[in-house]
Design a protein around this nucleic acid. Sequence first.
DNA 1: AACCGATTAGACCAGTCGTCTAGAAGAAAA
DNA 2: TTTTCTTCTAGACGACTGGTCTAATCGGTT
Lengths: 199, 199
Amino acid sequence: MSTLSAPHDVRQHILDTARPILGRKGFSAVGLNEILGAAGVPKGSFYHYFASKEAFGEALLEQYFTTGLARIDAILSDSGGTAADRLMRYWQGWRDAQTGSDACGQCLAVKLGAEVCDLSEGMRAILADGTRRIVARLERGVTAGGDDGSLPRVDDPGHVAMVLYQLWLGATLLAKFTRDHRPFDEAMATTRTLLALPP
Amino acid sequence: MSTLSAPHDVRQHILDTARPILGRKGFSAVGLNEILGAAGVPKGSFYHYFASKEAFGEALLEQYFTTGLARIDAILSDSGGTAADRLMRYWQGWRDAQTGSDACGQCLAVKLGAEVCDLSEGMRAILADGTRRIVARLERGVTAGGDDGSLPRVDDPGHVAMVLYQLWLGATLLAKFTRDHRPFDEAMATTRTLLALPP
DNA sequence: AACCGATTAGACCAGTCGTCTAGAAGAAAA
DNA sequence: TTTTCTTCTAGACGACTGGTCTAATCGGTT
């Protein structure tokens, strides 16, 4: 528990501490005490920064998507290589993050999504909106590949983007069951197929 | 709440009552009280039939996969039409079950999988084994399509089967977020593409 | 009537979320 | 420097639920 200066550091510190815990144990199975104990923050402070556990969950998911979208933007827009390279770099990054043994890289959409989307309308809305925005980014990536010639033009880039995202969500879930990387390898191969890239 | 005769009817009755409840609210968020209250079974009886809540969850998942696999077998083996028809009938059945507003048709692998697989090694093993068996059935379906000419032969039917399953898992998760059927439509279209069937 | 396994009632306590009162910390004003 | 005022912290507390287990009851057979 390092020293904290600005007021919002505490709020952020709670979120940062909670993320790996929720990523490992889910939402309902974790109590506020566990989170606050790990963060070294008293319970009284929690309700100063968050209206409820649900509001806290919403903030956590919101931040998860915010940072995730920034990461996508960083990969898809400003790096070198063709648009196809950038797109594939995104999937490789996904695989690497999930394959790592640390629970820090957990995909919260997969880990928490199914659990909380029927529990809280607010969290469901954030999940729906966050995933929609991710797919929109991917769609732009596919379109960019058609523009610069690194990918063949497709009729409906939005369709391709959504299907690829579904495929990787499913791969992530299956990999959690089997605890191996094969689902990601299969997803990667099919991603290349659907994008008409050489294996 | 009907009259129960044989002893194991009570155990089964608890499982049957719990399934839609867990399908809606998840595992950790549901207490034994709620399940047993709904089933009309006293709390004391629970530990006569199950060693723990975790053992109960394992039994629930086991039964879920048992009935699910039987349903696949019924669709893929004994009905009429080509092998391709039978395979597509399976996906249509998946979509219909999830699209229906009743929580009864919930896919427990998606709803509970991510939540419980890090919570209980036993449940994780059942999820890994159950999904592996489903993919094995699908693989046989793809192979059968190559045999009877209704599908083109593929190099690795196991790969196609696993990827299709991942795609539909992801579609189910995404549909839970958006609460519409579009993810399933996209999955269906891509399924036809990957199987080289006409749209 | 005596026995015995199958079944249940309810106690048990650790834990849940959320509330509330007090006071500490920190900055701004006098 | 002292006062004032808001922001934040402290953690006990309440009302309740969690899963678990022991002790008693039930129901049928000898």
